[in-house]
Simulated assay, not measured.
Amino acid sequence: MTSLPDIPLPSSIRSRYVENINGLTMHVLEAGFETRGRPCVLLLHGFPELAFSWRKVMPALAQAGYHVIAPDQRGYGRTTGWSAEYDGELAPFRLTNLVRDALGLVSAFGYRSVAAVIGHDFGSPVAAWCALLRPDVFRAVVMMSAPFAGPPKLPFDTADKPAPRAADDPVHRELAGLPRPRKHYQWYYSIRAANADMMSARQGLRDFLRGYYHHKSANWKDNQPYPLKSWSADELAKLPTYYVMDLAKTMPETVAEEMPSSAEIAANAWLPDAELAFYVSEYARTGFQGGLQWYRCGTSGAFDAELQLWSGKTIDVPSCFIAGRQDWGTYQRAGAVEAMQSSACSAMVGCHLVNGAGHWVQQEQPGEVNRLLLHFLEQTVRVQPS
């Protein structure tokens, strides 16, 4: 790994490796490491991102007195020890094992507990499950861009009226049968061809990622989200094509239709070409399958029974939700953001939508995200036992 190029980071962030973390050698970005005894904050990225996505957040948290740790999660970047063969074992990528990765990492750094775990996109459910399963370690949680509606429910009151057998969700057949046939991106990401589609994108990997990040950002002016009424084909078809795709198209073909102009790319201050180039170089080296395995764990239903062990359990540590106001991710699963606030989290102290941000909220509007995070930490660290 010593031959890999340097990461374009602020001088206050360092890159390092930590061995023997649940079978992984984890690549970690770290800030606030200069003095010992600081409270720790753990940052968990999403797809298709890396620890690098926190580069604009880490210095502010460190400046406020925190030791900030952001790993490349299992399946991503410079972390090694995982295998993403499509026909290989999925179990290492299931949510409970991702929590074990996070727990092992903070323990390796010598922490019995952390002030907060903060997750974005697919890192959001990992952070939520960290707080749900080990509230003694993860004493507060911030979920970003992906609301947490709670653990899957166990069948209830079925002794005399048995529940129907689990079957394929009919919504997928209904989506395919619409006048404009569609498919859900998570199920597309679960097919064998998805990784190859992206790695061999006709427009090239760089333009594919540029188009993908653009399409889901506030820069794409058609991102004007609103709540959906139900998990149904007619409602899901209202989502942009990066979520509910045209049936015959790949993801590279989907985002190519909304490729930003040269002028728009030049004006993009939140992801200039030099920073995009790092994402491109890392995914060119690793591919996307490591991240896609996470989607397959969910769409397969293979680990639902394990997660039902915590059916009805709530997140009882202080919690907060932050997303871009122009992010459809808040509403892509009907009722999730409402369930998060009303039933899944018993101590939610804030739900914030940030103006001028789409899905990549901490990259698009880092100043406001940092303000919200620091305010949340000031509120919660004060009341945590030492």
Rank of each mutant, 00 (worst) to 15 (best):
residue 285 R to S: 13
residue 245 M to Y: 05
residue 192 R to E: 14
residue 246 D to E: 14
residue 201 A to N: 01
residue 182 R to C: 10
residue 299 T to V: 09
residue 214 H to K: 09
residue 228 L to G: 00
residue 269 A to K: 12
residue 265 I to G: 00
residue 166 A to L: 11
residue 294 W to R: 06
residue 298 G to W: 02
residue 219 N to L: 15
residue 192 R to P: 05
residue 221 K to N: 11
residue 217 S to H: 09
residue 186 Q to M: 14
residue 278 F to N: 07
residue 201 A to M: 09
residue 297 C to I: 07
residue 269 A to T: 11
residue 164 P to D: 07
residue 197 D to I: 03
residue 262 S to K: 14
residue 249 K to P: 00
residue 175 L to C: 09
residue 258 E to C: 13
residue 188 Y to I: 04
residue 231 W to N: 09
residue 199 M to C: 08
residue 222 D to K: 15
residue 214 H to L: 04
residue 239 L to E: 04
residue 171 V to C: 07
residue 277 A to T: 02
residue 202 R to P: 04
residue 220 W to R: 13
residue 184 H to Q: 13
residue 191 I to F: 00
residue 211 G to H: 09
residue 239 L to C: 07
residue 263 A to P: 00
residue 251 M to F: 13
residue 231 W to T: 08
residue 218 A to K: 06
residue 300 S to N: 02
residue 180 R to G: 00
residue 180 R to C: 03
residue 283 Y to W: 13
residue 169 D to W: 05
residue 254 T to W: 10
residue 274 A to Q: 08
residue 239 L to I: 06
residue 265 I to D: 03
residue 296 R to S: 01
residue 259 M to D: 06
residue 226 Y to T: 07
residue 249 K to S: 12
residue 203 Q to T: 10
residue 232 S to Y: 08
residue 185 Y to E: 08
residue 259 M to P: 00
residue 236 L to Y: 01
residue 291 G to D: 02
residue 251 M to H: 06
residue 217 S to R: 07
residue 184 H to I: 14
residue 241 T to N: 14
residue 210 R to I: 13
residue 246 D to M: 10
residue 186 Q to C: 10
residue 294 W to Q: 02
residue 217 S to F: 07
residue 280 V to W: 08
